[in-house]
Simulated assay, not measured.
Amino acid sequence: MDEKLITIKEASLNNNCPECFNTNGLQLTFKQKFVETSLYKSITSETTQSIYCNTCNTDIFPVMWTEDIERVFAYHQKAFVPKKKSTKLKRKAWLLIGSFVIVILAVIIAAVLYR
């Protein structure tokens, strides 16, 4: 099972970085979990958020956030709309389902004919 996070929304923040105090390097990213197996692809409802400073190349963790960053984060979080949870079956799954249905139909027909 292959799990990865796909980026849904990115926003540049004009707040001061808590590490380097630069005002134009912060990047807020919202990601959603994507699962892929040999039978299906699925987008889950699980989301993650992160803030990264492109100037000093540092992840800004929530304990380092200032009140201004928290306010801007809350604003963007309210505006964030994740993709709907969905599952799509792959061709292999459809072939398994089809063959299972054919076997069941064959058993039913054989039972009716050879009574």
Results as ranks from 00 to 15, higher is better:
residue 27 Q to Y: 00
residue 27 Q to M: 10
residue 28 L to A: 05
residue 28 L to E: 06
residue 28 L to Y: 06
residue 29 T to A: 01
residue 30 F to Y: 13
residue 30 F to L: 05
residue 30 F to W: 11
residue 31 K to N: 13
residue 32 Q to R: 01
residue 33 K to P: 03
residue 33 K to E: 07
residue 34 F to Y: 11
residue 34 F to V: 00
residue 34 F to D: 10
residue 34 F to S: 08
residue 35 V to P: 08
residue 35 V to S: 05
residue 35 V to H: 04
residue 36 E to M: 00
residue 36 E to I: 04
residue 36 E to C: 02
residue 37 T to R: 07
residue 37 T to S: 14
residue 39 L to F: 03
residue 39 L to E: 01
residue 40 Y to F: 03
residue 40 Y to W: 02
residue 41 K to V: 01
residue 41 K to H: 03
residue 41 K to A: 00
residue 41 K to Q: 02
residue 41 K to W: 05
residue 42 S to F: 00
residue 42 S to H: 02
residue 42 S to G: 00
residue 43 I to S: 03
residue 43 I to C: 01
residue 43 I to M: 01
residue 43 I to F: 01
residue 45 S to R: 10
residue 45 S to K: 06
residue 46 E to F: 02
residue 46 E to Q: 08
residue 49 Q to R: 12
residue 49 Q to I: 08
residue 51 I to E: 05
residue 51 I to Q: 07
residue 52 Y to H: 13
residue 52 Y to G: 04
residue 53 C to A: 00
residue 55 T to A: 06
residue 56 C to Q: 09
residue 56 C to N: 05
residue 56 C to R: 04
residue 56 C to H: 03
residue 57 N to C: 06
residue 57 N to R: 07
residue 58 T to P: 08
residue 58 T to Y: 12
residue 58 T to F: 10
residue 58 T to L: 13
residue 60 I to G: 01
residue 60 I to W: 04
residue 60 I to A: 02
residue 60 I to N: 00
residue 60 I to E: 03
residue 62 P to E: 02
residue 63 V to G: 05
residue 64 M to H: 10
residue 65 W to F: 08
residue 66 T to Q: 07
residue 66 T to K: 10
residue 67 E to A: 14
residue 68 D to W: 10
residue 68 D to C: 06
residue 68 D to Y: 06
residue 69 I to F: 09
residue 69 I to Y: 01
residue 70 E to S: 14
residue 71 R to L: 12
residue 71 R to N: 10
residue 71 R to Q: 12
residue 72 V to K: 13
residue 74 A to C: 10
residue 74 A to H: 13
residue 75 Y to S: 11
residue 75 Y to I: 08
residue 76 H to S: 04
residue 77 Q to H: 11
residue 78 K to W: 07
residue 78 K to Q: 15
residue 78 K to V: 09
residue 79 A to F: 11
residue 79 A to V: 09
residue 79 A to R: 15
residue 79 A to I: 09
residue 80 F to Q: 09
residue 80 F to L: 07
residue 81 V to E: 03
residue 81 V to W: 01
residue 81 V to I: 04
residue 81 V to L: 02
residue 81 V to H: 06
residue 82 P to H: 03
residue 83 K to C: 05
residue 83 K to S: 11
residue 83 K to F: 05
residue 84 K to I: 00
residue 85 K to G: 04
residue 86 S to C: 03
residue 87 T to D: 06
residue 88 K to C: 05
residue 88 K to P: 11
residue 88 K to T: 14
residue 89 L to H: 08
residue 90 K to L: 07
residue 92 K to C: 06
residue 92 K to R: 13
residue 93 A to D: 13
residue 93 A to P: 15
residue 93 A to K: 14
residue 94 W to P: 04
residue 94 W to K: 12
residue 94 W to H: 13
residue 94 W to Q: 07
residue 94 W to D: 08
residue 94 W to M: 11
residue 95 L to E: 13
residue 95 L to K: 15
residue 95 L to F: 14
residue 95 L to C: 13
residue 96 L to H: 08
residue 96 L to A: 13
residue 96 L to I: 10
residue 97 I to K: 15
residue 97 I to Q: 14
residue 97 I to C: 12
residue 98 G to E: 09
residue 98 G to Q: 07
residue 99 S to D: 01
residue 100 F to V: 08
residue 100 F to G: 15
residue 101 V to L: 15
residue 102 I to T: 14
residue 105 L to F: 11
residue 105 L to Y: 12
residue 105 L to G: 11
residue 105 L to M: 15
residue 105 L to N: 14
residue 106 A to T: 06
residue 106 A to H: 09
residue 106 A to R: 01
residue 107 V to P: 11
residue 107 V to I: 13
